[in-house]
Every structure is written in C-alpha cells, then in structure tokens.
Computed example of a mutant assay.
Amino acid sequence: MSNDAGRLHVVATPIGNLEDISPRAVRVLGEVALVAAEDTRHSGGLLNHLGLKTPLVSLHEHNEAQRIDTVLARLQAGDDIALVSDAGTPLISDPGYRLVRMAQQAGIEVVAVPGASSVTAALSVAGLPTDRFVFEGFLPARASARRQRIKALASLSSTLVLFEAARRLPAALADLQVVMGGEREIALCRELTKRFETARLLPLEQMREWVESDADCRRGEVVLVIGPPAEAQAPPPVLPAPEVLALLRAEGLGARSAARVASRLTGQSVNALYDMASGQPRTPG
C-alpha cells in the first residue's frame, strides 16, 4: 500500500431506521475529503441529518466507469474518500465493485466500515437455516429468464436470499411455486427496520395467496429468504447400533473405543454398547 495515498472507506448506511448508523460511520463520513454516493440527493439528506458538510460526488451504475479515474486520482493524491450506496452495505447489488477493485490494484488501502445490510437483517428474522446461504440478488425481470434462473437455484442445499421489486412480487412468487413446489418454505421480509416492517414465514403456496390478497405486501423494499429443499434439511441417517459397532470393530477399534465412538453417533450408553461389542452382557449386581 502507498504511504502517501488516501484510503477508500466502504461505509454501510442505514436501510431504513437512521438510528442504525454506527458512531464510526458518522466519524468517517465527517472526516473524509469526499463521499462517493450512489444518489447524492439521498446521501445528502443523510449527511444533513448527521450535521455533516462533506462534499459529495455521484457514483452509480451509469457513470461508475467514467468516474473511477477521477476518484482514484483524488485517492492517490492523499484524499480519504467514503463510498456509500443509497442504503445498506455498498456493492451488495449496488455499484462500487469497479472502484474497489481498481483501488486494490492501484495499491490503495480499502477499509470496511460495516453496518446495516438487508441480507443479514432478513436472514436474522426469517426463521430459516443460516449456516449456509446463497445471495442471488434480483431475479431477471422477464418471465422466461426468471424461471430458468429459478430452475438453476432450486436444488441448491443452501438457504437462498433474493431481492425483488414489489411490483413483480406476485409473478416471482408464482414462478417460484411452479418450479420449487408449493410446500417449499419462504420468508417475506419487507420494509426492514422501517415503520411497516414485516417478516413472515410460510409455504410458497400460502405466501403467494397472502401476497395476492393483501396489497400492502406489494409495497416497499422486499427481501425473500427461501429455505433449502426438504431433503437437504433432513438429518443424515444413523445406522443401528450393532451395525455401527461392527463397522468400527472391522476398522480395528477395540471394544471400549468402538463403544465410545458408537455412543456419540447413536446416543446410546457406552456401557451397553461395550457389552454388545465385547459379547459379555453385564449382569445386574
């Protein structure tokens, strides 16, 4: 990293509730020489709310390629710059990837200032497995392309996180149901951290019916969290204790060691399994 260059701070901002901004984010936004914002009007309102006067420059999907050289030149001249999106963590279905990549390649330090994200917020309230998840972003707008993409995702053994425009929600849910089946669990997380926040978990068929019957569900910002297929959630089969013991003994374990391992696998008593492995039933004393 260049000692003379400034730093690029990737700053998360609230997804709704302004109280969610961190003290560190406020400090960084006040200290940097420039804020590169997806929408300067939106971010300008946030800065005004925070009482900050930091200059803003727009950096969005339509001008990012043209603005990168200018922003990089400021960084290389020693200016610290903050990158923000309209809401949440930049680069998560938002612009900024090109700038961060080129800053890295230019030897400029890139610093994360973490905070709000609709992806992690939705996962935290969905009621679905979170040990493994895949973030897909927005599904294609065209029906044929959307169904093809859903087919490619349907068999993944991880929880899926999708963004969807509220106006396309009924059509997207219909396609999800056709491809994945009506029993697949899905959580609708809408307007997270805002006044009308909603998080509801239902089978796909019931979710589609609820959304079609309630116009409020078709308003605001929407995150969909889809559970893995039922077979992916089933616990692995456990062999009967005698078979487990036989396999362990065949691998060369002694009766006591085999009993200890089999106990952890089956939940049965070590003593009972040792008696079974050694062929010496214990007599009551």
Rank of each mutant, 00 (worst) to 15 (best):
G78I: 07
K194C: 10
I81F: 00
S43L: 03
L139N: 01
G44F: 02
L56T: 05
L156H: 13
S124D: 08
G30E: 03
R7H: 13
V178Q: 15
Q206L: 14
I226K: 04
L162D: 00
L239P: 00
D94H: 04
E209N: 12
G182R: 12
D20I: 03
G254N: 08
G51Q: 03
V134W: 12
D86W: 04
Q280F: 11
R149W: 04
E164F: 06
V179R: 01
Y274A: 10
S58R: 08
F196H: 15
G127N: 07
P140H: 10
G227F: 02
F135K: 09
R264F: 12
T130K: 04
I108M: 08
L169T: 02
V119S: 01
R67L: 08
G78K: 00
A103E: 00
A36E: 09
G30M: 03
D94F: 06
V270Q: 15
A187K: 05
R132E: 15
V32I: 02
V71Q: 00
S158T: 15
C217W: 02
L153W: 11
T159I: 11
E209Q: 15
T40S: 14
A116K: 09
N3E: 14
L204V: 10
L153Y: 07
A33Q: 14
L59I: 07
A241G: 07
G78W: 00
S58N: 02
A262L: 06
L59P: 00
R282T: 13
G107D: 12
T54H: 10
A36K: 03
A112H: 13
R190C: 10
E197G: 09
R41A: 09
D275H: 12
Q76D: 14
V119H: 01
I15L: 06
L204S: 10
Q148A: 13
K53D: 13
R142L: 15
M180E: 12
